[in-house]
Design a protein around this nucleic acid. Structure first.
Lengths: 134, 134
DNA sequence: CTTGACTCCGTACTTAAGTACGGCGCTAAG
DNA sequence: CTTAGCGCCGTACTTAAGTACGGAGTCAAG
């Protein structure tokens, strides 16, 4: 039997370093359960709720959207590992696409700034002029 | 004297490969002028309007937001090149920050997927399990 | 027993960059 | 002369992930 130290929603939020509003938002989105309320009292949250919020935040930090997190949670019964992998592979593809796009932007922008540094005292700003035709 | 071939808003939108609604949206945002309307007639747009829309789209493709584009347009008198450069340098910094963040995500996600491939037939999905603690 | 902090709940607002809609007028073709 | 297709204009809706607010109720300390 584990020692459950029950938290209020505020304590849970602090423990997960999110706001109370975020907790309530996740509940509305169905990502997090809402404990039964003891008849005109205050809800209590356990460690599994904290783990859930951390799960959501970790997945988000890896680029998953909340609806994808919801999918993961549905698949979290040990049986759907392949399905979860497919989602992660798609996300990885997406991340790599964004990465190369951003790299393209980086080099173009860097070139523009460089040009702006070297070609001083021109009639018109090379950077702004470039935006007409990059 | 240049041959101005005047366009309707629809023709301008097609020429710039945006929608009419986008043109009108840019006008509301002050990014694009609204030609005088010939008393109960239809507005006509010229090449400078097309150039302006292309300018906006090019800047957007380099990661600038519309409010930053608006700044560029205000600076476009040849006198504020240094100011424009500062904006571009900030954007470049921002792009590089996002780039390294995305690289971090890429490697973590790739490792997770790899683990999911090799460690088959485990009791629980390593990917989902990892989200509890990455 | 009061005060202050916190919870509960519903609703509305935020940002960015559009998209969609609906009613009207004009205009070019048949 | 009529009709189809645009243009004009205002307003509202979209997505994502929360934030903000306001009026209650509750709980613990003093």
């Amino acid at each position: 039997m584990k020692m459950e130290f029950a938290m209020t929603i505020g304590a849970l939020a602090r423990a997960a370093t999110v706001t109370v509003e975020t907790i309530r938002f996740y509940q509305r989105r169905g990502l997090l359960g809402t404990p039964r309320k003891p008849a005109g009292g205050i809800r209590r949250y356990g460690e599994e709720d904290l783990a859930r919020v951390r799960f959501i935040k970790t997945a988000q930090a890896l680029g998953f959207r909340l609806d994808e997190v919801a999918l993961f949670l549905k698949l979290d019964d040990g049986l759907h590992c392949a399905d979860a992998r497919v989602i992660a592979e798609q996300k990885l593809k997406d991340v790599r696409r964004r990465l190369s796009e951003l790299q393209r932007i980086e080099s173009t922008l860097a070139a523009l700034v460089r040009e702006c540094h070297t070609r001083r005292r021109r009639i018109s700003c090379p950077l702004i002029a470039s935006l007409q035709r990059v």
